Simulated assay, not measured.
Amino acid sequence: MSDHKLFSPIKAGAIDLKNRIVMAPLTRNRARAEDDAPYEIHAEYYAQRASAGLIITEASQISPQGKGYAWTPGIYSDAQVAGWKKVTEAVHARGGKIVIQLWHVGRISHPVLQPGGADPVAPSAISANSKSFDGENFIDTTKPRALETGEIAGIVEDYRKAAANAREAGFDGVEIHAANGYLIDQFLKDGSNKRTDAYGGSVENRLRFLKEVVEAVTGELGADRVGIRLSPYSNANNITDSNPQETFVNAIDLLNRYGLAYLHLVEGQTGGPRDVPEGADLSDLYKRFDGVKMGNNGYDRDLAVNRVEGGDVDLVAFGRPYISNPDLVERLAQNASLNPWDQSTFYGGGREGYTDYPVLTETRAA
């Protein structure tokens, strides 16, 4: 193993990691169609990648209402908990650590994916003009219904129940998905939150839903088993904020109260350029956070090594390279070539493009 700091152990809250390489959450749309449960194929896929310091699962909806794409897994039913238990057991058997990403898509959905054909929900009735996936095609998202104030506590409770289910399924912790234009991000950013009640308007009010979710989840699991993902400058799913630096300085100051396991930041645009807007300061956000810092977006080996060595981040999350390289840690340690990914098999399907990528020893023997 390389002697770079990237490959050294670290403790994230209560979770001991054998290296600082993280498998980022990656939506793959392969849950069982009848109940959105993971099954044996997921156990094989994640176990193949257990040499990561930490695996963050694909985003998993906390309720039927939280769903925005066909065949994404949930963490709210007995069948889903049972399916995820197979995954955690397989990962732990290979010495890995794994957390589940808790997800509510908010307005990034369509009535065909909602219980009873209902409208998706959001802080405000503003369309995202984005895309969802109905199992056959990418379709336009629809105009959401603004949540009534009295409904919000029920969604917070769904997060708490999902955290309890994650513990039952054997996860080492959870990551709260508060990024990429989904529900929590929709509350945080003023382009999608036009509310006039206690959840809108001022930065403090727009942080209220995040605060309540964090308190519910940490109250269930303990803060040292809870991470959070933010995307301060990303316009993913057509979300905007008039002053993201102010919003997320305040968000991180709030999160510092809880002693979370880690902060996971999307640097720049989700899956796109790493640039940040004029007047923004990514390093300031990292410096404000008191705990373990995880960077994400467009990392290669050199960037990961340099940013960890320089103390900019403590952990690095790799996304697409983990799709096609189950042994990514070993490849990075040896500075070996990486398998190219096949984008046509990213979403939906079975084992092809999922569990059939070769490891380094197989590649060299071929």
Rank of each mutant, 00 (worst) to 15 (best):
Y39P: 04
S77K: 07
P73L: 09
A280Y: 01
A333E: 15
L332S: 08
R320F: 08
H4Y: 10
N137C: 06
A162C: 09
P144Y: 11
N193Q: 10
D185E: 04
D300R: 03
V203E: 02
Q101W: 01
S242D: 03
L147Q: 12
R28P: 13
G272P: 10
I10D: 03
G150D: 14
G96S: 12
E58K: 05
D284H: 13
E136S: 09
F248C: 04
G295W: 13
L282Y: 11
G181H: 10
I100H: 07
I155F: 08
N29V: 05
V217K: 08
F209D: 09
N19W: 04
E352M: 06
S283G: 11
S2A: 10
P321K: 10
R167W: 12
Y69T: 04
A366G: 14
A90C: 12
E220Y: 07
Q48M: 01
K18H: 09
N137L: 14
V99T: 12
V87R: 07
V292H: 04
L265W: 09
L6Y: 00
Q269I: 02
L282T: 09
G271C: 12
A24P: 07
S242N: 03
S63C: 07
D312M: 06
N137Q: 15
E168Q: 15
M23S: 05
S63D: 09
A280G: 05
G83W: 01
A179D: 01
N129Y: 13
S283W: 00
P273L: 02
A14Y: 00
A366L: 07
K67F: 04
E175T: 08
D275R: 06
K85S: 13
R32P: 09
G74D: 06
A47D: 06
P273S: 08
L54N: 06
A118F: 00
P111N: 00
N137G: 11
V292T: 15
P38A: 10
E58C: 03
S231G: 14
G83D: 08
I56F: 06
L338N: 12
S202F: 01
A304Y: 02
A90G: 13
Q269W: 01
N297S: 13
